[in-house]
């Protein structure tokens, strides 16, 4: 039971932070299929930073680890500008742009990783090795039955994510900027006449999605393989998109969707382990979260409604 919660959270939270990025972008009216590419590029930036800097820090230095998150965030944000430029300035079809960003991201990071490993570090490799991110346990709280597992053996980045989600929720629903952002996804013409620059708001929203996806990508780089390699493109971005559509483009229901997914996933693993089934059964068990999601969608999709202006190119001249 404990393991279900521990593993579930460490999988669900990174997905969640990526999904929050997606919510920002889509609530502002920009369809974002690019999350997968954004998280990959973010993780690449963080990984590259660690590879370049590891000589200057002690092994497994927490400072370096946290800095790598910062860099991943910046990297993701910078790369997301491409999506923002394509969608806003170049008026590209937003779905197309998203797909292009993803493909380009795999290409660029794959190319650069090998190229930099060969020419800078002199060893041909397609990955940047990261240090192990130690899990921590809070002594007192972790003793509480069942709930205590939440405070046991968690990655410190999970705390970061929770804090970020709260901040993002606050920005989106309480501040003027959040109000403008949500309005842009509903009626950009109205926002424009209120004297707010629609394209600027959308641009920033996309930057948010890049930054948050970058963090999510970095989490996976640490938690799955402790290195950056093309393996980080394992579909987390698409899962995040599913989660946010499932959550009807709202932060809290999306959070719930991520949790259900994460727990279903770790739960299924544990069942296989508990029943001492052969490891090939874990493949079967892995389908459970996806099947569960589909089933839940069957019941909860009827009233789903995307933001009204989602995917619309905003053209000031159009009346």
């Amino acid at each position: 039971m404990e393991t279900i919660i521990i593993d579930g959270l460490s999988f669900a939270l990174p997905i969640m932070i990526i999904a929050v990025g997606g919510i920002y972008s889509e609530r502002s009216g920009i369809t974002n299929l690019a999350l997968e590419g954004l998280l990959g590029f973010g993780a690449f930036s963080g990984g590259l930073f660690v590879a370049l800097m590891s000589g200057y820090f002690a092994p497994a230095s927490p400072t370096l680890i946290w800095l790598s998150f910062l860099i991943a965030m910046i990297g993701g944000a910078i790369y997301s500008m491409l999506h923002a430029l394509l969608c806003i300035k170049f008026q590209a079809n937003q779905v197309i742009s998203g797909v292009v960003i993803n493909i380009l991201s795999v290409a660029i990071t794959g190319f650069l990783t090998s190229q930099i490993n060969t020419s800078v570090f002199g060893k041909p490799s397609d990955k940047f090795v990261l240090s192990v991110f130690q899990r921590i346990t809070i002594p007192g709280l972790s003793k509480i039955p069942v709930i205590g597992a939440v405070f046991k053996d968690f990655y410190p980045f999970e705390v970061l994510i929770i804090v970020l989600i709260i901040i993002c929720w606050y920005i989106l629903y309480c501040t003027p900027f959040g109000m403008h952002l949500r309005a842009c996804g509903d009626n950009p013409q109205a926002v424009d006449t209120a004297g707010i620059n629609v394209n600027k708001v959308r641009f920033i929203a996309v930057l948010f999605s890049g930054a948050l996806s970058g963090i999510g990508g970095m989490c996976f780089a640490y938690s799955i393989s402790t290195n950056f390699s093309p393996a980080v493109y394992m579909g987390a971005g698409y899962l995040a998109i599913s989660a946010l559509i499932f959550g009807n483009w709202k932060i809290m229901p999306t959070f719930l969707a991520c949790l259900i997914f994460g727990f279903a996933r770790s739960g299924a693993y544990q069942v296989v382990k508990y029943m001492k089934l052969s490891s090939s059964f874990s493949d079967l068990a892995m389908t459970i979260p996806y099947i569960l999601t589909l089933l839940l969608l069957v019941f909860f999709s009827k009233n789903n409604r995307a933001p009204r202006a989602l995917g619309e190119i905003y053209d000031k001249g159009k009346r």
């Binding site: 109000m179 403008h180 509903d186 009626n187 109205a190």
Partner: peptide, 14 residues
């Protein structure tokens, strides 16, 4: 030029 899912107040102060 109104945001349909906002309240009257929210629209006015936008």
């Amino acid at each position: 030029k109104l945001i349909e899912n906002y309240t009257v107040t929210e629209n006015i102060i936008l």
